[in-house]
């Protein structure tokens, strides 16, 4: 409870203090990426099922809602439930054959799925606009408020992040969460205690996919322009990196990972052509020294210093 209040306070405070539209947009992107990382963390961090095609659900969410609002003139709010259900069904259909695979093969399968979706965005020109993407996506509005610029989208996205956090935390503390973690350790042992492992894997995959679709919906109506490149293979890899860098099986890790991977490229712009080298270097260093991810790693460092401070005075006495 206490943690949640702090989280809300931080969101509200940030929204009040930051007024630069560029910074606000950056913070909003962190929120959207957090949703992506959170969904994948449930699939990968908790249930131990690797997915290299998570950006496909992000893209499907963005494209479905965009097409419905542009071509059929639906209100985005009407398009939202339809988008989530549609992407949920796609995730279900993909998961059925896919999650019979495991390890490297599951990675390859999801990778291929991500590629297929990307090429559909790219090649189905009559529908998706191909390379040049879709323009003129209507922004979200609620009465007089438009969620296109400024603080409004920030609050909307972070409000949704907050709710998703609560949902995920409750899920993890429930019997479903225990079952997911058990799946990570040993599928055979999970089956032996009576867990329907294949159904559970499909369920968590659909959950992650729907969360990514929600992120895609928010992204499309905030930026009002989408193109296939946003949802390519590199984006999938980026989401995986967010989860790993932030911390597997950690809700807060998704937030830290998303924040770091969103902010780092912005900060590193000053290095111009060396940007990517430094970016890669930082990730490598984090993985070497904090292999459990930022969340666990920083906690360890904190505890280390705390215990040292306690023992120091004693050594002075001696």
């Amino acid at each position: 409870m206490y943690k949640r209040l702090v989280f809300i306070a931080v969101i509200v405070l940030t929204g009040q203090v930051v007024s630069n539209p560029y910074d606000l947009q950056l913070l909003t992107f962190i929120g959207i990426n957090t949703l992506l990382a959170l969904g994948l963390n449930m699939v990968m961090g908790y249930a131990g099922q690797i997915s290299l095609g998570h950006a496909a659900f992000f893209g499907l969410g963005a494209y479905t809602s965009s097409l419905l609002t542009i071509h059929l003139d639906w209100s985005p709010w009407l398009a939202l439930p339809f988008t989530l259900v549609f992407v949920g069904i796609v995730a279900f259909l993909v998961a059925l054959p896919m999650l019979r695979l495991s390890g490297y093969y599951l990675g390859m399968g999801t990778l291929a799925f991500g590629m297929i979706v990307f090429f559909i965005f790219l090649q189905w020109r009559s529908l998706t606009g191909g390379d040049s993407g879709l323009i003129g996506i209507p922004p979200l509005t609620l009465g007089p408020i438009s969620f296109e610029f400024g603080a409004a989208p920030f609050y909307l996205v972070w409000g949704i992040v907050f709710l998703s956090f609560i949902v995920c935390e409750r899920l993890i503390d429930s019997r479903i969460g225990r079952a997911l973690r058990s799946l990570h350790d040993s599928e055979r042992a999970s089956a032996a205690v009576g867990i329907n492992t294949s159904r559970l894997k499909v369920q968590v995959f659909v959950f992650g996919g729907v969360l990514a679709a929600l992120a895609g919906f928010l992204y499309a109506h905030m930026v009002t322009f989408i193109s296939p490149q946003t949802f390519d293979f590199l984006m999938s890899v980026k989401i995986v990196t967010m989860v790993v860098i932030g911390g597997m099986a950690s809700v807060w890790g998704s937030l830290f990972g998303a924040a770091l991977l969103t902010l780092l490229p912005e900060w590193l712009h000053v290095f111009a052509e060396y940007e990517m080298i430094i970016y890669g270097l930082i990730l490598v260093v984090i993985m070497i020294f904090l292999p459990q991810g930022l969340t666990r790693g920083l906690l360890d460092i904190y505890e280390h210093f705390k215990s040292r401070r306690k023992t120091l005075p004693k050594s002075h006495e001696g």
Partner: peptide, 18 residues
Amino acid sequence: MLFPPMSVLDNLKLGAYL
């Protein structure tokens, strides 16, 4: 075939999953 990183209590609760 326990679930080693999980607590003893969580392991027991998993037994009652159904």
